[in-house]
Amino acid sequence: ATNIVGKVKWYNSTKNAGFIEQDNGGKDVFVHKSAVDAAGLHSLEEGQDVIFDLEEKQGKAYAVNLRIK
């Protein structure tokens, strides 16, 4: 899926990971530091509006192509 709108639920820069809550009510999506880095960002803030694509690896959904809304 592409161009999904959501809000950062939480992001821990020590653990280099967090979750994004989908505005469409879907399951929360894992976001890794690699996606944050690829977006040219240093970190994510709780409640921040984002747009992202979903990629599945080994049955788990990940946020990729992250951008700030």
Rank of each mutant, 00 (worst) to 15 (best):
A1D: 09
A1G: 11
A1C: 12
A1N: 13
A1Q: 13
T2W: 11
T2K: 14
T2M: 11
N3S: 08
N3Q: 07
N3M: 06
N3D: 11
N3Y: 05
N3P: 04
N3F: 05
I4E: 03
I4W: 06
I4M: 11
V5C: 14
V5R: 15
V5D: 08
V5G: 11
G6W: 01
G6C: 01
K7S: 05
V8Y: 02
V8R: 00
V8L: 04
V8F: 06
V8N: 01
K9Y: 03
K9V: 05
K9E: 00
K9R: 10
K9T: 03
K9S: 03
K9L: 06
W10Y: 08
W10K: 04
W10R: 04
Y11Q: 02
Y11D: 02
Y11P: 02
Y11S: 03
N12G: 03
N12C: 12
S13R: 13
S13H: 13
S13V: 13
T14A: 13
T14Q: 13
T14F: 13
T14G: 11
T14M: 13
K15H: 10
K15G: 06
K15M: 15
K15F: 13
K15A: 11
N16R: 15
A17W: 15
A17E: 10
G18T: 02
G18Y: 07
F19N: 03
F19Q: 07
I20A: 01
I20S: 01
I20R: 01
I20Q: 01
E21R: 14
E21P: 01
E21S: 15
Q22F: 11
Q22A: 10
Q22N: 07
Q22W: 12
Q22G: 07
D23N: 14
D23P: 15
N24S: 10
N24P: 07
G25E: 06
G25M: 07
G26C: 09
G26I: 06
G26N: 09
G26A: 09
G26T: 07
K27S: 10
K27E: 10
D28N: 09
D28V: 10
D28M: 12
V29S: 02
V29E: 00
V29C: 03
V29Y: 06
V29D: 00
V29R: 02
F30C: 07
F30N: 03
F30S: 04
F30I: 06
F30Y: 11
V31E: 00
K33E: 04
K33P: 06
K33G: 11
K33I: 07
S34G: 08
S34Q: 09
S34R: 10
S34C: 11
A35Y: 05
A35G: 03
V36D: 00
V36Q: 02
V36F: 05
V36M: 09
V36P: 01
V36E: 00
V36G: 01
D37I: 15
D37E: 14
D37S: 12
D37L: 15
A38I: 08
A38R: 10
A38V: 07
A38E: 08
A39M: 07
A39S: 11
A39Y: 02
A39D: 02
A39V: 06
G40D: 06
G40H: 07
L41C: 06
L41K: 04
H42W: 11
H42E: 12
H42A: 13
H42Q: 12
H42S: 13
H42I: 12
H42M: 12
H42C: 14
S43R: 12
S43C: 13
S43W: 12
S43T: 14
S43A: 11
S43I: 11
S43Y: 13
S43M: 11
L44S: 01
L44E: 01
L44M: 05
E45R: 13
E45T: 14
E45I: 14
E45Q: 13
E45Y: 15
E45W: 15
E46W: 12
E46Q: 15
E46P: 15
G47W: 04
Q48V: 09
Q48D: 10
Q48H: 05
D49K: 15
D49M: 15
D49G: 14
D49E: 15
D49A: 15
D49W: 15
D49C: 15
V50I: 13
V50W: 01
V50M: 06
V50H: 00
V50S: 00
I51N: 03
I51Y: 08
I51F: 07
I51C: 08
F52M: 02
F52R: 00
F52G: 01
F52D: 00
F52E: 00
F52K: 00
D53L: 02
D53M: 03
L54D: 00
L54G: 01
L54A: 03
E55V: 14
E55C: 13
E55Y: 14
E55N: 08
E55G: 06
E56W: 15
E56D: 08
E56S: 10
E56R: 12
K57V: 11
K57S: 11
K57H: 11
K57R: 13
Q58S: 13
Q58R: 13
Q58Y: 14
Q58G: 14
Q58D: 15
G59N: 08
G59H: 05
G59L: 04
K60E: 07
K60D: 06
K60F: 11
A61Y: 14
A61F: 15
A61R: 14
Y62W: 12
Y62K: 08
Y62H: 10
A63I: 05
V64N: 04
V64W: 05
V64H: 05
V64L: 04
N65Q: 03
N65V: 02
N65R: 07
N65S: 03
N65C: 05
N65W: 02
N65E: 03
L66S: 00
L66A: 00
L66P: 01
L66I: 13
L66M: 03
R67D: 03
R67M: 05
R67H: 06
R67W: 04
R67Y: 04
R67S: 04
R67K: 09
I68G: 04
I68N: 05
I68H: 04
K69C: 12
K69V: 13
K69Y: 12
K69S: 11
K69A: 11
